[in-house]
Amino acid sequence: MVSPVGDGAIIFDSRNGKYSQVNATGLRILEGVIAGNCVEEIIEKIASEFDIAWSVVERGVLSCLVGMSQRGWLRKDEE
């Protein structure tokens, strides 16, 4: 469950009963994933919105996605 709070969000993981907090960028990444956007689309949207170099955003987005994956928040769809 994702609950927006200020510029970020609180995420409740019902599998382990833990809460996590993400900042505005983390929320944008999560929203992009939920919307089905590809990584490049997520990066472009954040780079444009925050006026940050694409390469800088790319590193942050990839790092955030790895963290989300390690927490079990993301799953790979089977084809």
Rank of each mutant, 00 (worst) to 15 (best):
M1F: 03
M1I: 04
M1T: 11
V2W: 00
V2N: 01
S3C: 04
S3Y: 08
S3H: 09
S3Q: 14
P4I: 02
P4S: 04
P4V: 06
V5T: 12
G6K: 13
D7N: 13
D7Y: 02
D7I: 07
G8I: 04
G8C: 03
G8Q: 05
A9N: 05
I10C: 03
I11G: 04
F12E: 08
F12I: 08
S14E: 15
S14V: 08
R15H: 10
N16V: 13
N16D: 15
N16F: 02
G17P: 11
G17F: 05
K18Q: 05
K18Y: 00
Y19T: 13
S20L: 01
S20D: 11
S20E: 06
V22A: 02
V22K: 10
N23Q: 11
N23V: 03
A24D: 09
T25N: 04
G26V: 01
G26Q: 03
G26S: 08
G26L: 02
L27I: 05
L27S: 08
R28F: 01
R28D: 12
I29D: 09
I29C: 11
E31F: 03
G32L: 10
G32M: 09
G32D: 10
I34W: 06
I34C: 06
I34K: 13
A35I: 03
A35E: 14
G36R: 10
N37F: 12
N37Y: 08
E40N: 14
E41H: 14
E41P: 14
I42G: 09
I42T: 10
I43V: 15
I43G: 06
I43D: 05
E44T: 11
E44P: 05
E44N: 09
K45R: 15
K45D: 09
K45V: 01
I46R: 01
I46N: 01
I46V: 10
I46A: 00
E49Y: 12
E49M: 13
E49T: 15
F50V: 07
F50P: 01
F50I: 07
F50R: 15
D51L: 04
D51C: 05
I52F: 00
I52T: 15
I52M: 07
A53W: 00
A53D: 11
A53E: 11
A53K: 13
S55R: 13
S55P: 10
V56P: 01
V57H: 05
V57Y: 04
V57A: 08
E58N: 12
R59D: 05
R59T: 02
G60Y: 02
V61Y: 10
V61P: 14
L62Y: 05
S63M: 05
S63C: 02
S63V: 00
C64W: 03
C64V: 03
C64D: 10
V66D: 12
V66T: 14
V66S: 12
V66Q: 13
G67Y: 05
G67R: 13
G67S: 14
M68V: 04
S69P: 06
Q70R: 15
R71L: 15
G72Y: 00
W73T: 08
W73M: 04
W73C: 06
L74N: 14
K76S: 09
K76M: 08
K76A: 11
K76H: 06
E78N: 13
E78D: 13
E78G: 09
E79C: 06
E79M: 07
E79V: 10
E79G: 14
